[in-house]
Design a protein around this nucleic acid. Structure first.
Length: 430
RNA sequence: GGAAGGGUGCCAGAGUGGACGAAUGGAACGGUCUCGAAAACCGUCAGGGGUGCAAGCCUCUCGGGGGUUCAAAUCCCCCCCCUUCCGCCA
């Protein structure tokens, strides 16, 4: 959520920053929020004034009763009772307007950082690093789609995955399955120097998915279990963020660094039929996420740290990659500033998004009520959250199949993964 | 899933309708004392919302939500969570 007090005190600044997202309807939402807020404060003030009178009368009733003056007490009770009726009407209206305001605020996206490049869509995302490791040209034997290579090697069996679960599910076998797991282990080990490993729940509550921003607006994208009011996590970001929901953290304990490997579940409601072959898009995939809660002033440095860490993980695999910044028109709902790392896949002839590194400012913290207390100061403020996919398995797996395919159709495994491959350094057909 | 007992501030813990946003103890922080520390003593010590230049004032919050009442931590209802026992189970 954005800060309603910020919007209230500097509406034009917020309008200006939000306009950079190039979504005109957002300005209407801002005005709606301002309207509800103004109304809410008016009736709250009125309601509280009546409550004050009721509280005072009740105190007097108590005193009169104790002194045995029941007749006077009854008079005051009657007076208080009629005030109570008025209070109830106002309270009902307050609740209604508050709910409306909250609904608008939950749907409003985050305010982009002032340095984010303005654009309308992903075609305007600037490349800020690279391309790195990109050869001038690729030999023919690398111009083969990973699904063909992997199916021929017997390490990808999507046909049976579809039989088991339906369209857009994948299944790796043998060295292919080992490779998927090796990538996770490698990504975790690469960040274990500073990040505490977490094994969070994969099924989470509505509140948890609301904190990170998936709900209420993107409910169709998530799998839900209506019997139990639980949701399958689309990313470990959700449970990691809510670890400290409702807590007040000491400034001295920040930044907090967590990492987690999890399966991720996505309905891909808007993209049925797209990227249906191979490993580019599926309903269930594995990912290692790195996550941090930082102070507002510590957040920019943490963003750099996350980018640096993810870049190192990808670069050490030897894959061609580039880093792009997400422009205002392409930014996600919760993002304050965001970067993607893409790897090049010569077989598909496409840049594949394999990691997203994001700074959420206090947007998620406000939704999840994650606060911090400054050393030696009174009061609290919202912390900042940031996260990055350290490694999303399927597309990296696919890029390895295409970049390291050899003339005989086998695939060489990057050296950094060898420790996790049970001795396999090249995947040959069985 | 069934039964019983619980959920109060940073922690422990009192509070069963009115003087309670909450006794008492501990912790923490500030101070006095001290060369310094300990002890002792004094003080501070919840968060949200509204309002105000500010000091302050008002309001809400005792797991969550509803209800009864002039008045609820306290009475009633629903839900959640924790503990123990039983059942089931990898």
């Amino acid at each position: 959520m954005i800060d309603i007090r910020y919007l209230r005190s500097e509406p034009d600044t917020v309008r200006g920053l939000m306009a950079r997202r190039n979504k005109p309807e957002l300005l209407g939402l801002l005005d709606e929020a301002l309207g509800f807020d103004s109304r809410m404060r008016d009736i709250t003030a009125e309601r509280d004034a009546i409550r004050q009178q009721v509280n005072e009368l009740s105190k007097q009733v108590g005193t009169l009763r104790r002194n045995g003056d029941d007749k006077a007490a009854e008079g005051l009770q009657a007076e208080s009772r009629s005030l109570g009726d008025k209070e109830q009407t106002l309270a009902a209206e307050t609740d209604e307007v508050t709910a409306k305001l909250k609904d608008v605020l939950l749907r409003l996206p985050n305010i982009p950082h002032a340095d984010v490049v303005v654009g309308t869509d992903d075609s305007q995302n600037p490349t800020i690093t690279g391309p790195m490791n990109l050869p001038a040209s690729f030999p023919e034997h690398q111009r083969v789609a990973h699904w063909d290579t992997a199916t021929a090697l017997g390490i990808l069996d999507n046909e049976r995955a579809v039989k088991i679960s339906g369209a857009m599910f994948t299944m790796q076998r043998g060295a292919g399955a080992t490779l998927a797991r090796a990538l996770c282990q490698y990504a975790l080990d690469s960040n274990a120097d500073a990040f505490e490993e977490i094994r969070p729940p994969s099924l989470v509550s509505t509140a948890t998915l609301t904190a990170t921003g998936q709900l209420p607006k993107f409910a169709d994208d998530a799998y839900s279990m209506s019997k139990d009011d639980l949701w399958c996590i689309p990313t470990a970001e959700a449970p990691l963020t809510s670890i400290h929901a409702g807590e007040v953290l000491a400034e001295a304990d920040l930044p907090i660094r967590y990492m987690a490997h999890s399966s991720c579940y996505r309905r891909e409601a808007g993209s049925a039929g797209r990227d249906t072959r191979g490993m580019l898009r599926s309903h269930e995939f594995d990912k290692v996420e790195i996550f941090s809660i930082a102070t507002p002033e510590g957040a920019p440095a943490m963003l750099i740290e996350l980018i640096t860490r993810v870049e190192r993980v990808i670069a050490n695999l030897g894959l061609p990659y580039r880093i792009i910044e997400i422009c205002t028109g392409d930014m996600g709902q919760s993002h304050h500033r965001s970067f993607d790392i893409e790897v090049y896949a010569p077989g598909c002839d496409a840049w594949l998004e394999v990691s997203s590194i994001s700074w959420f400012s206090d947007y998620q913290a406000r939704r999840g009520d994650i606060r911090m207390k400054r050393t030696g100061q009174k009061g609290t403020e919202f912390a900042h959250t940031l996260n990055a996919s350290a490694l999303a398995v399927p597309r990296v797996w696919a890029a390895i199949m295409e970049n390291f395919r050899q003339e005989d159709g086998s695939v060489a495994i990057p050296a950094v993964l060898h420790p996790y491959m049970r001795g396999t350094t090249v995947i040959h057909a069985k």
